[in-house]
């Protein structure tokens, strides 16, 4: 990894340890993800990738019996700091889940949900402005043309692929800088996977994206940097093509060749 100034990194963890009760799930994780890139995390089930992802917006704390040491800096600020407001953390760090989880309201309301929550309470927002926000978010996720005639229909009526795109779209109006994605394609069929991957690739540069995947081909196709984790530790982190073509660590090589998984 080339070194840089602190705030060149969108996500930077230092000596991050995490316990679920007595079970230690993360060991001294040092991860640094540069701004504006797509980084994927691969590794066998239970290796801590989802835990690490969920630590990056502190959603993990909800479980109650979680304890952490070390630091997580997002955009140069420690999210475990005393003056940190969780609402701001969640606003600036969007999250996409395995199963698309649109709210049981219309497509329009889904996309504007976060916007109304954060923006519309500070100032008067006109209907025209809302329409603009709505269209721009849906354009960015390549959904506008499909849904522009049924914006007031329930979002739950969309296909899974469209739902997942919508879940990404509704993060955009509050202008997050970091998007965390937890196996965003695992509930989708191959065509849906391709469409969502293409979308993620399009968002590169505008957002820093950290994506957990079980699918090595996907990591290879859709990320610039790749992190390999095993048993709560980061084993290797490098440019994706290098990690796949010439892994430095024998465990990485074994995993990407499918000797265990």
């Amino acid at each position: 990894m080339d070194s840089g100034r602190h705030d060149d990194f969108a996500i930077e963890t230092r000596g991050l340890n995490l316990w679920y009760g007595d079970f230690q799930a993360l060991y001294d994780v040092d991860l640094a993800v540069k701004r504006g890139i797509i980084a994927s995390m691969i590794g066998p089930s239970g290796c801590g990738k989802t835990t690490l992802l969920r630590t990056c917006n502190r959603i993990i704390e909800r479980l109650g019996y979680v304890r952490t040491t070390g630091s997580v800096n997002i955009l140069g600020h420690n999210i475990f700091g005393d003056d940190v407001e969780l609402v701001q953390v969640r606003k600036q760090i969007g999250m996409v889940f395995q199963r698309p989880n649109p709210l049981p309201i219309s497509i329009r309301e889904n996309v504007l949900f976060g916007f109304r929550l954060h923006e519309a309470r500070l100032r008067k927002v006109t209907a025209a402005e809302e329409d603009e926000v709505l269209e721009s978010a849906l354009q960015q996720v390549l959904l506008w043309d499909t849904v522009k005639d049924r914006l007031d229909k329930p979002a739950t009526g969309l296909s899974l692929e469209e739902q997942q795109k919508l879940c990404i779209a509704r993060l955009l109006p509050v202008k997050p800088e970091v998007l965390l994605m937890d196996e965003p394609c695992s509930a989708l069929d191959p065509a849906g996977t391709e469409a969502v991957e293409e979308l993620i690739w399009r968002l590169r540069g505008d957002y820093t994206i950290l994506i957990v995947t079980h699918n090595m081909a996907q990591a290879r196709r859709a990320s610039e940097e790749c992190v390999f984790m095993l048993l709560g530790k980061i084993i290797e982190h490098g440019r994706t093509e290098e990690l796949f073509l010439s892994p430095k660590h024998s465990k990485t090589a074994d995993y990407i060749e499918g000797r265990y998984g």
Binding site: N57, I59, R62, V87, Q88, V89, R90, K91, G94, M95, F97, R99, N101, P102, L103, P104, F113, G114, L117, H118, C167, R170, L171, V174
Partner: peptide
Amino acid sequence: AFREACWNMG
């Protein structure tokens, strides 16, 4: 999942 979706939008 609905609650999770909301919390994650802050």
